[in-house]
Design a protein around this nucleic acid. Structure first.
Lengths: 159, 159
DNA sequence: TGATAACCCATAAAATTCCATGCTATACCA
DNA sequence: TGGTATAGCATGGAATTTTATGGGTTATCA
């Protein structure tokens, strides 16, 4: 079971190269050879990324939603039209296209944030601010993790 | 199934290594090979930990809760972005990332506290204080374990 | 031909593996 | 029963490997 977990901050060198965290590369498995797909997040000021295979799964599940043709068109253009496939070199690095870097304000450092099947790439400072806010919001909604876990256990017959 | 029970305090060496109590490793069963997942508790000043499999169950149950997309987004970031997968080495040890140690104030000793399907990792002194306070709170509410057990039995038709 | 991307190599830091030691609880035996 | 071997565990340190990151060199393609 390989998921993208945890957050790590890596440097972007003069040539625009960044190391993809080794744990993420491991999670990709054989898919590393096909590189990763990057597109702008629709929700937050960051980039979304996943394996090529996962993008395929995403598009399939999109088809199952009953979206209006206009909405579908919109998503197609935004996500698939705006996505780029990035090769991962022998040293585990990618080059994020210039316009993406600018769009989300990444310069000399990039934060890789795991989100299970996908991950995000942030400007570390922006992410930190977002994380702090997110943490407070989750806490203030009194969503207790242990409660969720208890529910999870119940769903699985208490096993 | 095997649960995480009881508390034990182990030393953190110079390299940041700590032994996971053998009883906890036993409770993990085959899941030891995937290591454990650690994240900051949303409630207390400690770390939460569970098996990778349990995190998967957790994420499934998250999907089933009727959360707003925004809240879902926040939780995903907080939990999955804020968690790390820690490998358990051949000697039964893990390395807790530096920033986690700092965040909850663990230095040379760590208390492993069983919480059935998950466990927590505390600074031993902080845990002791917390435990004392919790105990007092429970007592002041006049809650007794035997009463809880009696109530539970009644719910199950005296079985 | 000039910029960009792909490839190759070097290095320091960090993580992982391997081995040694002392301690404790348990099993075994006279 | 008392003493001794044994196995498992926590812990320390050394050796080895992996990773991130920098730099140079060669293809590639407008």
């Amino acid at each position: 079971m390989s998921l993208f977990l945890s957050t790590s901050i890596n440097k972007v060198d003069k040539k625009g190269r960044v190391s993809v965290p080794s744990t993420f590369r491991a999670a990709l498995g054989d898919d590393v050879h096909h590189g990763i797909v990057i597109f702008r997040s629709l929700q937050v000021d960051a980039l979304d990324a996943c394996s090529l295979k996962h993008l395929d799964i995403l598009s399939q599940s999109l088809e199952k939603l009953s979206l209006t043709p206009e909405m579908y068109e919109l998503i197609e253009t935004t996500i698939f039209g705006g996505s780029v496939q990035c090769a991962i070199d022998a040293d585990g690095r990618i080059i994020i296209p210039e316009h993406f870097m600018e769009a989300v304000g990444i310069d000399d450092e990039a934060a890789f944030v795991g989100r299970r099947r996908t991950f995000q790439i942030w400007n570390p400072k922006k992410f930190k601010a977002f994380e702090t806010k997110a943490r407070d919001a989750v806490r203030s909604h009194n969503i207790s993790l242990s409660k969720i876990i208890a529910d999870a256990s119940a769903l699985n017959g208490g096993e």
